[in-house]
Simulated scan of single mutants.
Amino acid sequence: MAERLMVVVGYEAAELLDIACVTTTLAMANGIGAPEVPYRVLLAGPGGGPLVCGSGLVLGSERSLERLTGPLDTLIVSGGTGYERAASDTRLVGHVRRLARESRRVASVCTGAGVLAAAGLLDGRRATTHWRFARLLAERHPKVAVDPDPIYVRDGHVYTAAGVTSALDLTLAFVEEDHGTELARQVARDLVVYLQRPANQAQMSLFTATPSAPDDGVRALVEHIAAHPDDDLSTAALAARAGVTPRHLTRLFTEQLGRAPGRYVRQARTEAAAHVLASTTLPMAGVAARCGFGSAEALRQAFTERFGIAPSRYRAAMRPA
């Protein structure tokens, strides 16, 4: 194999960052590492004409989808505000389906998952997309197991990345798969990013993903939990602090925050631990104590459940390359 042909699919109102994160990362891999099998990157779109991105900037596509043939190493469909129109374009979707059959890997970035789903390429697979559009993707494509949390998901030879800059993480993962950790690290260093965030790292913090509670008492408890994760945050203690019964507090949390107090506290403590792990050198026992876990083992179990990675590995991944 003389080169790895990487094709990025764009369309009207595609997201420029979805495209650039992929193409720039691959170009850097070629320039920095001079790999024996370099990447050849093409931008393809319907008709092969200029593509007006969602930001208004114009990109020149190098190939038309209609005339492009395999074999390809990787087919990557970008997302963007025009994804719904792209996903309803039967000709575009048909060419994506055809090219996917001729590709070693198939991937999407952000809402590009909607195009892959329209082509039937995600049926029976676990996939992710931008957190804001995950519910819509699941409703429209019930055969797809949509997981809104991870940065990216690999299911067999099909990869789906979350919102926008998660394309960096996905493409760095490709570089690492193809050419090893050291080249991926060098590229990450030049991009001034982490080597790569763990695939299962949550896209959003609990405190930004959770809707604001309309009840003043619940909002006050949320603020207290965030500020004092090492306090007694049992349902009984929180209920006493709010002046309500534990049963009533459970109902308020479930209705307004989508989870019972105990579950909310566990996630809040785990996210607090992620921050402490990334920003300090405290030993695991110290991290556990600061964030309200009874032991380092309790922290490990909660952290692995939430992020799909051990705290020690998370800390190592969060260190600058």
Score class of each variant (00 low, 15 high):
78 S>Q: 09
78 S>M: 11
79 G>N: 11
79 G>S: 11
80 G>E: 08
80 G>F: 02
81 T>N: 07
81 T>H: 05
82 G>K: 10
84 E>L: 11
84 E>I: 01
85 R>C: 05
89 D>S: 02
90 T>V: 12
90 T>F: 02
92 L>Y: 01
93 V>R: 05
93 V>W: 01
96 V>H: 02
96 V>Y: 02
100 A>L: 08
101 R>L: 10
101 R>M: 06
103 S>K: 08
104 R>E: 14
104 R>P: 09
104 R>D: 14
107 A>D: 06
108 S>L: 00
108 S>F: 01
109 V>T: 10
110 C>E: 13
110 C>S: 15
111 T>M: 05
113 A>E: 07
121 L>P: 11
122 L>W: 03
123 D>G: 10
123 D>I: 02
124 G>P: 11
125 R>D: 06
129 T>C: 07
129 T>N: 06
134 A>H: 00
134 A>G: 08
134 A>W: 00
136 L>Y: 01
137 L>R: 00
137 L>V: 01
138 A>P: 14
138 A>W: 00
139 E>A: 06
140 R>P: 08
141 H>Y: 14
144 V>G: 06
145 A>I: 04
149 D>N: 07
149 D>H: 06
151 I>M: 14
151 I>L: 13
153 V>I: 12
157 H>I: 04
157 H>F: 04
159 Y>F: 15
162 A>R: 05
162 A>I: 03
163 G>E: 07
165 T>D: 12
166 S>I: 03
169 D>N: 15
169 D>G: 12
170 L>D: 09
170 L>M: 12
170 L>S: 10
170 L>C: 10
170 L>F: 01
171 T>D: 13
174 F>P: 14
177 E>I: 00
178 D>S: 06
181 T>L: 13
182 E>H: 04
183 L>N: 08
185 R>C: 07
187 V>N: 12
188 A>M: 09
188 A>G: 09
189 R>N: 09
193 V>T: 13
197 R>H: 10
199 A>D: 14
201 Q>R: 13
202 A>V: 07
207 F>L: 15
207 F>D: 15
